[in-house]
């Protein structure tokens, strides 16, 4: 019997693995797309902010500066 017939259970096994693959890959693609679009929107907003900051990141800036200082100190 061939591999794809799965001992007569092909009608159950392949859909089970297919649904798993479809859902997991779908979620991955949706999550990646959303990240891309948000990062692009963030870049646009920062560019529109007009170079007020070297690499402006909104309110995260103070936190960033603090971390950098903390990590630089020996």
């Amino acid at each position: 019997m061939s591999f794809f017939e799965m001992g007569g259970y092909a009608a159950y096994i392949w859909p089970a693995f297919g649904v798993g693959a479809l859902v997991l890959i779908g979620l991955l693609v949706i999550s990646l797309r959303r990240l891309k679009s948000r990062e692009a929107a963030l870049l646009r907003l920062e560019a529109a902010g007009g170079g007020r900051r070297r690499r402006g990141r909104g309110d995260g800036d103070e936190e960033d500066a603090e971390t950098e200082k903390e990590e630089a100190s020996p």
């Binding site: 999550s31 948000r38 907003l45 902010g49 309110d59 995260g60």
Partner: peptide, 12 residues
Amino acid sequence: RSEIAARRIRNL
């Protein structure tokens, strides 16, 4: 990462 970006967008 996407949520953190969204929060920054909101704050900006």
